[in-house]
Design a protein around this nucleic acid. Structure first.
Lengths: 255, 255
DNA sequence: GACAATATTTAGATTAACCTAAATTTGTCT
DNA sequence: AGACAAATTTAGGTTAATCTAAATATTGTC
């Protein structure tokens, strides 16, 4: 079995490949917050294990074996995130950190049961696709809000792990499945003027924030949302749905 | 934060103290399947950390701090076991191993949310008491079936981690909340003749097995069971209850 | 009370994962 | 082409948790 450390290396490298970013020693080191030298050591080790190809002074590429391993970890991570959010009522800004630890210790059985409990979901709370048991991912070509054309859009994904930022976005209502209109783009890297569905007043959003928000044209978005909603309602298990937190502490606490 | 290894040491020592067993170097080593010398090293380290008192050539005793830490781990372990059983539909013979890994990585938030999800349960799937958030445990003075007097009893606890044995017991119907009559005790360490509630034919059970089964007189058992049943029905969440495994694979699998 | 059997500790090594600092390679710019 | 900066690798060291084998302490028995 692989150590958590190895799993983290693979996950990071997969993510870099997804982003078309060369997995050089220093970049991997920066992402994992370790010294360059530690990465060099690890690369050699992972090459010996057949998980990646290592070209000195260039960087690494995952082998098929390495890719599959990384995808398995990603699957665990995202299913756990969704479980934390939906069943345990975690705020979406909290799910990442907890999943980061759990993903390294849960068994295959655990993952498959979670998958079933959640109704074989397609996406995690941030709108990221959950790979299936064979490592297949459904590709989606989303536009980021910063690049979107004026008009109606539906948020499908938010790419960020920063709890503070995610909390802010939630307060503003900028979460997956929310519909909005892009009204105006202030020139010279200025903010975007947007109006959320249901609200009457428009609001402004910084460009950097908009780069993390991924949308689809509103008419196409309809179908996607219906699918999800249907699926979710069939699986309304957990704390969040039943709002146990309002009438808390029964049973053992009051004997 | 403590390492998993440290948590395992503390949990083991707590268990030995509960069993009134002296936590000597060699006994701790045997339980954890490590060399005696490793234990000596660790004891010194844990003493320095104020988690236990170490008397060379004698053994160790937990300090209050050590005890509380161990109880916290135990709480995590047992809540996770119950979650695996009730929400994810794990067989009771599988819960221990998985919990053994999860218990070291889940946050306090996770534990408290699980507790709420499960309806603040008092016991894990084996009938062991779950310590509350402050580390209090409800004491119960149960008789083991091997020592019980003839008559009606209710099983409240089964002390074993051996998957094979637990599977056997489940097949025989010897699980917590089951009622049975002890009919006869065959002399000279012979088996017990018992009859389970609902069944018509009596059966025989080896004495070693009977030592792992803890019971309470049937009339007292009634009340306890009612409490539990009530609590559980208020929280009928999860795979097991809804029997998702029969109509499996929907959603992502069939797009 | 001596002495063997048993339990425990000490000594010295190993492994995974990391570090810092020094050497080396690569790529760019004139 | 040569020189320099940046990136990368090498060298040597650290820490936690383990091991084996040797040394030492405790205990029970005659």
């Amino acid at each position: 079995m692989l150590t958590s450390t190895v799993e983290d290396y693979l996950k990071t490298i997969l993510n870099m490949e997804d982003m078309k970013e060369r997995a050089s020693t220093s970049r991997v080191a920066r992402r994992l917050a370790v010294a360059d030298a530690s990465v060099t050591d690890m690369m050699r080790k992972l090459q010996k294990a057949g998980l990646l190809e290592y070209r000195p002074y260039y960087g690494v590429t995952l082998t098929e074996k390495g890719r599959q391993t990384a995808l398995k970890v990603l699957r665990r991570h995202r299913l756990i995130e969704l479980f934390l959010h939906r069943t345990l009522g975690y705020g979406w800004e909290l799910v990442h950190e907890e999943a980061e630890r759990l993903e390294h210790v849960v068994s295959d059985l655990f993952v498959e049961r979670l998958d079933a409990l959640l109704g074989f979901p397609a996406k995690d709370p941030h709108g990221e696709a959950i790979p299936d048991a064979k490592g297949h991912r459904q590709e989606e070509h989303l536009t980021c809000l910063a690049d979107a054309r004026p008009g109606a859009h539906t948020i499908l994904r938010v790419k960020s792990r920063d709890p503070g930022f995610l909390t802010f976005l939630e307060q503003e209502g900028l979460v997956p499945s929310r519909c909005l209109s892009l009204l105006e783009r202030i020139p010279f890297q200025g903010p975007l003027k947007i109006k959320l569905s249901g609200k009457r007043v428009p609001q402004y959003l910084g460009l950097e924030a908009a780069k993390c928000i991924f949308v689809i044209a509103a008419d196409q978005g309809e179908r996607e949302l219906l699918e999800e909603a249907k699926n979710r309602s069939r699986h309304s298990t957990g704390l969040k749905d039943r709002q146990v937190f309002k009438n808390k502490r029964r049973g053992r606490e009051r004997p």
